[in-house]
Design a protein around this nucleic acid. Structure first.
Length: 412
DNA sequence: TGTCCACTGGAAGGGAGGGCTT
DNA sequence: AAGCCCTCCCTTCCAGTGGACA
């Protein structure tokens, strides 16, 4: 072969000027259609610069409605101003999807505040209260105002209860030489119902709701990013609008829109085309669906896979809206075929709810009168994805179950 | 109007696993 | 090594429920 295999692609003119403009972590300099939210945060957080304690805040909104990016933007400027004024403001962002237990949150915070010579706090092992003591000590040592951002806080409360939030919102009564403010970010408007009233009262001193972006607002965001991220004139008429419309259907998720646009441009590049047209957007849309679902399918725990497998087997046989009981019967048969001890119906009920949350199935509670109350379950995996094959590739037991599927089908 | 079905989903708790302290 | 602490996954138990049907 002539020359290096990377040369051909490397030499190609990219349609991108700056690919980073489409990253989720990208921090834009302007935030279209979020002035009200920025101002609300600023009005509250300015107290940190005056030496007071800002109110704790709760930010609500669907995914991709700008909660995180607005918060980062405001906190970034706050930190800057604080340094300028000699009023140290420290900010910590914790994603409670990744750091999802009381212990780990406290441990992460304390570790971020550690200095040379401090005892390292292990991932697990210590009583949480002891870690909390270290955290308080370190916060006081650092002084100033500490702003703790708990992103996807609903996830934490769901898994670990509100004990931690009780501790954190109580910190100001223990701290001697510093102050602390909590900003919770949640996708779920109703999550405060899970909280002890004392905690929700202290945490939600100021609520801020981020409304989903509309199609025209997403268009503005995309146009803005395209200016920084793309070469001029690479987008054909209607591309931005199509991306915006598709994302607006997905509950106004701006992140989704940015992904769509980025992948559309990549699709055009891969075909060595100099213009992006709506066909590329369609291709990007189906790739995005595929890419979202595949890793989830592959990494589901075995019994989750078996449950989903059972639902798909039923659907392949033309059965829709199957009940929990039917899912369970097919599931236990499948377990029998691969020599796995089936879990209890109660557990399967929880697994079904989890699959629903993951978006792998649609489940709704229905009552059939004397026929009893149950769920109606349908899979929600895009048609472009072959769920059983994807799971089989990732798990030999599912492959085995798939080989035995004719035995299951004879039951149905 | 009351009954009854087929569940749902909360509560409590067991036990394995991983890690630290004494 | 024994004793804690914490998390995760799971079971058992059971009160509660929406709505068709007698």
């Amino acid at each position: 072969m002539e020359g290096n295999i990377f040369e051909k692609i490397l030499g190609q003119d990219s349609l991108f000027l700056d690919r980073k403009a489409f990253d989720h972590a990208f921090e834009p300099t302007t935030l279209p259609h979020r002035d009200r939210e920025v101002e609300a945060l600023v009005r509250n957080l300015v107290d940190a610069l005056n030496g007071h304690i800002p109110s704790n805040m709760l930010l609500y909104g669907v995914p991709g409605s700008g909660k995180t990016v607005v918060t980062r933007f405001v906190l970034g400027q706050l930190g800057e101003k604080g340094r300028e004024m000699g009023q140290p403001v420290r900010t910590y962002e914790i994603n409670c999807r990744q750091v999802d237990t009381r212990y780990r949150v406290v441990q992460t915070l304390a570790t971020k505040l550690s200095q040379r010579g401090d005892v390292p706090i292990p991932f697990t092992g210590w009583p949480t209260d002891r870690v909390l003591e270290h955290l308080v000590e370190r916060m006081d040592r650092a002084g100033g105002v500490h702003i703790i951002v708990l992103d996807e806080i609903d996830n934490l409360v769901e898994r670990a209860g509100d004990n931690l939030l009780y501790n954190l919102t109580n910190l100001n009564t223990i701290l001697k030489r510093s102050r602390c403010c909590i900003i919770g970010i949640s996708n779920d408007l109703h999550f405060t119902q899970l909280l002890d009233p004392r905690v929700s009262g202290r945490l939600g001193q100021e609520d801020l709701i981020f409304h989903p972006y509309g199609a025209s607002e997403i268009t503005d965001i995309l146009t803005e990013r395209a200016k920084t991220g793309l070469r001029e004139d690479v987008l054909e008429q209607g591309v931005v609008q199509l991306c915006a419309a598709l994302a607006a259907q997905e509950h106004g998720d701006a992140r989704r829109a940015l992904d769509l646009l980025r992948i559309s441009v990549q699709k055009a590049e891969q075909r060595s085309q100099t213009k992006v047209d709506p066909r590329h957007v369609r291709l990007a849309q189906s790739q995005l669906e595929h890419d979202q679902v595949t890793p989830v399918l592959q990494t589901l725990p075995l019994h989750q896979k078996l449950v989903l497998f059972s639902i798909r087997i039923n659907e392949d046989n033309g059965l829709r809206n199957i009940s929990t009981g039917e899912v369970y019967r097919t599931y236990s048969d499948a377990c029998l075929n691969v020599n796995v001890e089936p879990l209890t119906p109660r557990r399967i009920s929880t697994l079904l709810n989890e699959l629903d949350t993951l978006g792998m199935i649609m489940a709704r509670n229905v009552s059939k009168g004397r026929g009893g109350r149950s769920k109606q379950v349908n899979s929600a995996i895009p048609k472009t994805v072959d769920a059983i094959t994807t799971m089989s590739d990732a798990d030999p037991l599912i492959a085995e179950a798939a080989r035995c599927r004719y035995r299951l089908q004879s039951h149905l």
